[in-house]
Amino acid sequence: AQLADQKTLAKQIYEAYLKNFNMNKSKARVILTGKASTPPFVIHDMDTLRLAEKTLVAKMVGNNGIQNKEVEVRIFHCCQCTSVETVTELTEFAKSVPGFVGLDLNDQVTLLKYGVYEAMFAMLASSMNKDGLLVAYGNGFITREFLKSLRKPFSDMMEPKFEFAMKFNALELDDSDLALFVAAIICCGDRPGLVNVGHIEKMQERIVQVLRLHLQSNHPDDAFLFPKLLQKLADLRQLVTEHAQLVQEIKKTEDTSLHPLLQEIYRDMY
């Protein structure tokens, strides 16, 4: 009965993941391996970026004064738009994780505040390969070299995510593994300021246990995958800490604004 319960939970979380996220690893891999009917438009310099802005991300850069700003600020703005969309997807996903909506509302907020960026960077790896990153719902591909060529501090924004992604992708997780991993990131009992820690720890324990069993059956040849993934949770926390510091620096020194939802998340984070 317990095993059946765990399988049901894994299935519910996987279904919620497929339903709520616009992009997932299997979709991204089809595009990145050249098997999509239309290949993504490659952004690798200023000209191709301008073209992409007119077509792929016209909604993000048009009619808000952003089109006259410098290239780094425009890209940063697009990153923010994508982040906001992903936070809303993650919120809906979290609400579908059994037990989450029964938590104290302030604890739900705390779990999202601290979990969304870790989850986002874990999922971002699915859209990356060593040469670049899928953007605009998989319709574009921006090269790692082009992102690196931007001026500082913007050039430092994505490179740590590529480095994390290359190691993370080597674990060869599929979407069913990632769904449970993302749920484990969000339902984390040691976020600062949680009121009902015991309640969340119980939920976390159940999800982590299901993740361990799922990895055992889905990756029988990699006995150390579970401990490797637990280490990735720590790596993601470090990645987010550094990202938050970089965003604070950009906010202080650059002529750019931060979306109110992202401001809420970053404020008093670490």
Partner: peptide, 20 residues
């Protein structure tokens, strides 16, 4: 609660989109 009003709103009402 005031500090995280958009997150609160997203949690309580899924049909309210966030402006980009």
């Amino acid at each position: 609660k005031e500090k995280h009003k958009i997150l609160h709103r997203l949690l309580q009402n899924s049909s309210s989109p966030v402006d980009l």
